[in-house]
C-alpha cells in the first residue's frame, strides 16, 4: 500500500508550503516531516512527496541522497550519531566509537537486531565545548566517556 500522510501532517505541510513562493522549496521541511512520520524515506515516500510538491520523484531522490540526515533505509528506534570530527576525536571519540560498536554488537551504519539502535558517525555537531559528544535522535549528549555512554543507553527504553 502506498503511504499517506496523517491529517495532522497534511495540515502542517500546507502551512509550510505557504511560506515559499515556489512549492518545491518546501521539500526539506516536508522531508523532515516525512521521516518523522514514516521513519525513513523510501521510494514510495519519495513519490508521495514529489506528487505533493508538484515535482518529479527523481528530484526528490537527488535531494534525499544529498543530505545525510535523510535516511533512505529504516533506522532503529534510537539513532546514535557520534561525532568523529576534530574536537571530539582529540578527546577520544575514536575509542568511544569502538566501544559503541562493541557494546551494540554492530558496525557503523548498522541497526541492532531488536531494531532499537542504529549507530553512525556524524560530522561536527556544533557542540565542541562538550566534546566528545553524540546525538541520539535529536538529543545531544556531551562530555562522553564509556561510563556515561552506559548510563545513557541504559536509560533508553
Amino acid at each position: 500500500m502506498s503511504p499517506e500522510f496523517s491529517d495532522r501532517t497534511k495540515k502542517r505541510i500546507d502551512k509550510i508550503v505557504a511560506r515559499y513562493p515556489r512549492k518545491e522549496a518546501a521539500i526539506l521541511p516536508v522531508l523532515h516531516l516525512t521521516q518523522q512520520e514514516f521513519g525513513h524515506i523510501s521510494d514510495e515516500e519519495e513519490k508521495l512527496v514529489a506528487e505533493l510538491l508538484g515535482i518529479k520523484p527523481i528530484e526528490v531522490r537527488e535531494v534525499v541522497t544529498f543530505y545525510t540526515m535523510l535516511n533512505q533505509r529504516p533506522v532503529g528506534k534510537y539513532h546514535i550519531q557520534i561525532c568523529s570530527n576534530l574536537s571530539c576525536s582529540l578527546l577520544g571519540a575514536e575509542s568511544l566509537i569502538d566501544y559503541l560498536k562493541e557494546k551494540l554488537g554492530i558496525e557503523l551504519g548498522e541497526t541492532t537486531e531488536d531494531k532499537k539502535f542504529t549507530l553512525s558517525t556524524v560530522e561536527c555537531l556544533g557542540a565542541c565545548e562538550q566534546a566528545p559528544c553524540m546525538m541520539i535522535n535529536f538529543d545531544y549528549y556531551g562530555h562522553l566517556d564509556k561510563k556515561k555512554i552506559d548510563e545513557i543507553l541504559d536509560n533508553l527504553k
Binding site: 521510494d43 520523484p57 527523481i58 528530484e59 531522490r61 537527488e62 541522497t65 544529498f66
Partner: peptide
C-alpha cells in the same frame, strides 16, 4: 536522469 549522492560518490543515474 539525476545526480545522486555527493562528493566522490556522486553519480548520474535513472530512477
Amino acid at each position: 536522469l539525476g545526480v545522486f549522492e555527493r562528493g566522490i560518490h556522486s553519480e548520474i543515474n535513472i530512477l
